[in-house]
């Protein structure tokens, strides 16, 4: 803390010296003015000394106060550190105890689970061994059975293949014979159909013409042709009419 000359400027420290009120001196003559002047200088010097003294005292007090405050703060810090440390140690102890309890409980649980798993594993292993043994026995039995069946099947297949081969040869021969017969029959039927077609084709065309030309010509249109045909056969008609 620094107290500068402002207090002096404001005049409040001047109250210290108020127990000595200044007395007004009547203005006398130039000689009296010099005295006043000397007094002013004197008071000014006293003021300066007082000011410096005050400033020094204040500075000293400030430094002392600062030292005290610093030492107090250091103590408080130390005490606070100790308190906090104690509290933290207490909390850590509590947490450690709780963690240990939890770890112990978890460890117990894990140990129990492990034991259960080991027991289950043992049981499963035993069951698997039994099953494997049973399956092995079944498979052996089935394999032997299948082997026997395959052997009999192979024998049957061999005989069936031989039979089939014989039948295939016979069928090929029959197919060849049937093919030859069919070819002959087809050729014969073709010839018969063609002959029938040719024989009936004239009738078909005739029927077609009869149907197509029916009612196409009236008697007037046909009359010249009719008269011509009658004229061509006139002799036969006349002969018959004479009879």
């Amino acid at each position: 803390m620094k107290l500068e000359g402002n207090s002096v400027k404001h005049g409040w420290n001047m109250g210290i010296f108020k127990h000595k009120p200044e007395e007004e001196t009547p203005q006398l003559n130039p000689a009296g003015e010099s005295v006043d002047h000397a007094l002013d200088e004197y008071f000014e010097g006293v003021k300066g000394k007082g000011r410096s003294y005050f400033e020094k005292a204040v500075t000293d007090h400030v430094s002392v106060f600062k030292k005290d405050l610093d030492s107090t703060i250091d103590r408080v810090n130390e005490q606070l550190k100790d308190y906090i440390k104690d509290r933290l140690d207490e909390q850590f102890r509590q947490y450690g105890a709780m963690m240990k309890e939890a770890q112990d409980a978890a460890l117990d649980s894990l140990n129990r689970s492990l034991q259960d798993l080991q027991e289950q594993h043992k049981q499963l292993a035993a069951t698997m061994q039994k099953n494997v043994a049973y399956q092995e026995a079944v498979m052996n039995h089935a394999f032997k059975d299948s082997q026997t069946r395959l052997l009999s099947l192979k024998t049957t297949q061999d005989s069936a293949v031989a039979t089939l081969n014989r039948e295939v040869e016979e069928l090929q021969e029959q197919r060849q014979q049937i093919s030859e017969v069919l070819k002959k029959n087809v050729t014969y039927q073709e010839a018969v159909l063609v002959n029938v077609f040719e024989e009936n084709m004239a009738m078909i065309i005739e029927n077609y013409l009869l149907g197509a030309l029916g009612d196409q010509y009236d008697l007037k249109a046909q009359l010249p042709a009719i008269l011509q045909q009658m004229a061509d056969n006139k002799a036969a008609i006349v002969e018959d009419m004479k009879l």
């Binding site: 030309l213 196409q216 010509y217 046909q222 042709a225 018959d240 009419m241």
Partner: peptide
């Protein structure tokens, strides 16, 4: 009508 065209002529004997 089945004659289509022409004539079918019948004399007393033919």
């Amino acid at each position: 009508p089945s004659l289509v065209a022409g004539v079918y002529l019948r004399t007393p004997n033919h």
